[in-house]
Design a protein around this nucleic acid. Structure first.
Length: 191
DNA sequence: GGGCCGATTGTT
DNA sequence: ACAATCGGCCCG
C-alpha cells in the first residue's frame, strides 16, 4: 500500500514521449502517477493513480475501434491529453491519450488513492471532471488538470487482471492495479 | 428519426 | 438482479 505521506513535486510533469508509446506499457507505468487538479478556489487536489485499463485501436472494446468519430476524435490527437467521455446517462470517465499522434489509444483511470474515488465514474464525480476537460493537455503543471510523475513503484506491487464492464475482448489482461490498495476492491483484484 | 446499447453505480 | 438515464452509433 502507498504511504499516506508521499512527497512529490507536483510541478514536475511528463514529457509527451512518455505517452507516445504502446498503450499497455503506458498503462502499467501510470500506476503511482499523481493526478492533479486545480479547483476554481485555487486549491490543488492530488492523488496517486492505483487502477487503470488500456484500450487500443485493435481492441474491439475500444471506442476508437470503429474509427474516427466526433467522440473518439481526441484519441487520435496528441498523446498526454485527456479523453473524457459520458456514459450511462450520468457518469464521466477520464482517460489519458496514448500512442503517437494519429494512432488512437487511451488509458482509463479507474481509481486513485483517495477516499471515495474508486471507480471511474465516482472519481470524475468527486473531482468535478466533465466533458469540458475533454482534450485538455495533461502535461502542463498548474493547468486545470495535469499528471505528475510519482515515486517508483516495484513491479511486484502491481497486479494484472481482466478489464471491467466490457463485453468484447474480455480475455485481455489489460487492467493494472496497485496490490493491497483499499481503493481497488478485492473482487476486482482477482481474476 | 428510431431503437438499442454502454469502459457505471447504487439499491433491491 | 435491476433501475437510473441519455448520448453515440447503427440502421434504414
Amino acid at each position: 500500500m502507498l504511504g499516506s505521506f508521499i512527497v512529490v513535486d507536483l510541478s514536475k510533469s511528463y514529457l509527451p514521449e512518455f505517452f507516445a508509446r504502446p498503450t499497455v506499457k503506458v498503462a502499467r507505468d501510470l500506476i503511482g502517477a499523481v493526478l492533479c487538479m486545480q479547483h476554481s478556489d485555487n486549491k490543488v487536489q492530488s492523488a496517486q493513480i492505483v487502477e487503470v485499463e488500456a484500450y487500443t485501436k485493435d481492441d474491439p472494446a475500444c471506442h476508437a475501434f470503429r474509427g474516427r468519430t466526433k467522440r473518439t476524435e481526441v484519441m487520435f490527437g496528441p498523446p498526454g491529453h485527456a479523453y473524457v467521455y459520458f456514459i450511462y446517462g450520468m457518469y464521466f470517465c477520464l482517460n489519458v491519450v496514448t500512442e503517437p499522434e494519429g494512432t488512437p489509444g487511451a488509458v482509463l483511470v479507474r481509481a486513485v488513492d483517495f477516499a471515495g474515488c474508486d471507480g471511474p465514474g465516482k472519481l470524475c464525480r468527486r473531482w468535478g471532471i466533465t466533458g469540458e476537460h475533454n482534450g485538455m493537455n495533461l502535461l502542463q503543471p498548474d493547468s486545470q488538470l495535469w499528471l505528475s510523475p510519482g515515486p517508483q513503484i516495484r513491479s511486484t506491487q502491481i497486479g494484472v487482471g481482466r478489464r471491467i464492464g466490457i463485453s468484447q475482448a474480455t480475455e485481455r489482461r489489460w487492467r493494472f492495479f496497485l496490490k493491497d490498495n483499499p481503493m481497488v476492491s478485492r473482487q476486482k483484484a482477482s481474476r
